[in-house]
């Protein structure tokens, strides 16, 4: 059952993009849009956007990279851990919660590590999986999105996003605890 569901999902995501492409091009042709010229015209901007986000991405990734490599993140985790174990939150899964908003590849690394050590169908495995799927790499997204349009003052964006992340992580914990 789970296997066939997974197959359907994998198939669905494999089909999604080709079908979207075909649909857009077909409707474009039917409505007499010069699809080729229009595509090229739009695509031209891709380069500028890619280049424009470089400095912002460098800034944020360097800071996060240093923070992790220096061991500062581990210290932070050790400080928070006793508080969270009070509510029954497993300390093994704490790095997951802390790294998730900072680094997508880092979180994937932590998750695969947790899945390997504790097994994917353990409480920790399920918790890490749910956290991974239900939150985003907030700092990366903010740096890239705001950087691409030259916004320097993010105002309340970061506070709101981190509040949402915290809510998502807490919800993941509660739901996994209730469901399984």
């Amino acid at each position: 059952m789970a296997d066939s569901l997974q197959m359907i999902l994998t198939e669905a995501s494999a089909w999604a993009i080709p079908i979207i492409i075909l649909a857009i091009l077909t409707v474009g042709m039917l409505r007499k849009v010069k699809v080729y010229e229009t595509f090229v015209e739009g695509a031209k901007e891709g380069f500028q956007v890619g280049v424009r986000i470089i400095p912002f991405l460098v800034a944020i990734l360097v800071a996060i990279g240093m923070f992790r490599a220096s061991g500062a993140l581990d210290i932070m985790i050790r400080l928070i851990d006793p508080l969270l174990s009070l509510v029954g939150y497993p300390s093994e899964a704490l790095p997951m919660a802390m790294i998730r908003p900072l680094s997508g590849s880092g979180a994937l690394g932590v998750m695969s590590d947790l899945l390997a050590t504790h097994g994917p169908d353990s409480f920790i495995g399920r918790l890490a999986s749910t956290m991974m799927g239900s939150t985003e790499t907030t700092f990366y997204v903010l740096a890239v999105y705001l950087g691409s349009i030259g916004v320097r003052r993010s105002r309340h964006t970061l506070a709101a996003c981190l509040t949402a992340d915290a809510a998502g992580l807490i919800a993941a914990f509660i739901v996994v605890k209730l469901v399984f």
Binding site: G28, L30, V33, G42, K44, G46
Partner: peptide
């Protein structure tokens, strides 16, 4: 580039 191109078509259509 790919998505911006496609989006442009979708927009014009």
């Amino acid at each position: 580039a790919f998505w911006l191109g496609l989006m442009k078509i979708a927009e014009k259509a």
